[in-house]
């Protein structure tokens, strides 16, 4: 009897906390959508900012797209190659364990520290100035460990028999990886890359120190152009804007950023679930 009461109490408690999570977690998303929809107009999406908090955010949207694309261009191939090495070639020795530990460390590195490093090394030392290139490279440092981790997992899931069959037919190791392992692992890798891109597009501290002011009224023309980005724009307008239009623009920009972020994580999860279902059947 006592146990039954306890069971009931615990269940009640669990219902309360899960209810709390269900209410709390979507609050921000709902809040942004509710306030942001009114700010979205063609002029807002295609105009450029002026007088600080007025105007549109076209350069910021394009800047974010450029930054993330370029960052993926650097980060994804490198991450996938590292994952292939770690899971297919490396034996478990001091070197690989060190590499793995450093990868984990990079994953947990505070973004402001990565930003500082980008500023010191890329902006000052390599004289890239605050630019698209410096921002994208710094972002790729941040994205790299996530890509490595996800790709490694995806590659490890590919059944051993696939490899053995290919090797038995006389294919070399590299041919096996290229023709058998990678195609089977691609959905998992894409999930990882997309999640990494979602992280990169929302990152503020890194682009603050390396990419540009956030208020640029132009789309970058070269790799060395300073580049505005949505998170920086939101940060500036949210903290310094003081008019109704400024607040509305901050909501609008947040909504656009959120939609871009959710598009990435939805497609990542979609690919993952689709792929898992296929493997399961």
């Amino acid at each position: 009897m006592k146990e039954a009461q306890k069971e009931k109490a615990v269940r009640g408690l669990l219902y309360v906390t899960v209810g709390l999570s269900i209410v709390i977690l979507p609050i921000i998303v709902v809040w942004v959508i509710a306030n942001g929809v009114g700010a979205i107009s063609l002029g807002f999406l295609t105009g450029r900012p002026y007088r600080f908090e007025y105007g549109g955010i076209f350069p910021q949207i394009m800047g974010s797209i450029y930054l993330v694309s370029l960052c993926t261009l650097f980060g994804a191939p490198l991450g996938i190659a590292s994952a292939i090495y770690l899971s297919e070639y490396a034996s478990d020795n001091v070197v690989t364990r060190t590499v793995r530990f450093f990868t984990e460390t990079l994953a947990g590195m505070p973004s402001i520290v990565i930003g500082l490093f980008g500023l010191e090394f890329l902006v000052y030392y390599l004289k890239l100035k605050t630019s698209l290139l410096a921002g994208a490279i710094s972002l790729s440092f941040m994205m790299l460990p996530w890509t490595i981790r996800a790709s490694e997992e995806a590659i490890n899931v590919v059944p051993k028999e696939y490899r053995e069959a290919s090797l038995a037919m006389g294919a070399t190791k590299w041919q096996t990886i290229l023709r058998v392992v990678l195609p089977a692992a691609i959905p998992g890798i894409m999930t990882g890359v997309l999640l990494g891109m979602g992280k990169a597009i929302g990152e503020t501290a890194v682009v603050w120190l390396t990419a540009g002011s956030g208020l640029e009224a132009f789309v970058p023309r070269t790799l060395k152009s300073p580049t505005g980005s949505l998170p920086m724009y939101i940060y500036l307008i949210a903290t310094q804007g003081h008019t109704a239009e400024g607040l509305q623009n901050a909501f609008g920009a947040s909504l656009v950023l959120l939609v871009m972020f959710l598009a990435m994580s939805v497609s990542a999860l979609f690919i993952r679930n689709h792929y898992l279902r296929r493997l399961g059947s």
Binding site: I28, V32, I201, G202, P231, A250, F261, S265, V266, L269
Partner: peptide
């Protein structure tokens, strides 16, 4: 679970704005 997973890594600047 899938809605929680969707918002893992939601841009921190948006949370700060909130």
């Amino acid at each position: 679970k899938s809605s929680v997973e969707l918002i893992v890594g939601i841009p921190s600047v948006v949370i700060g704005f909130f």
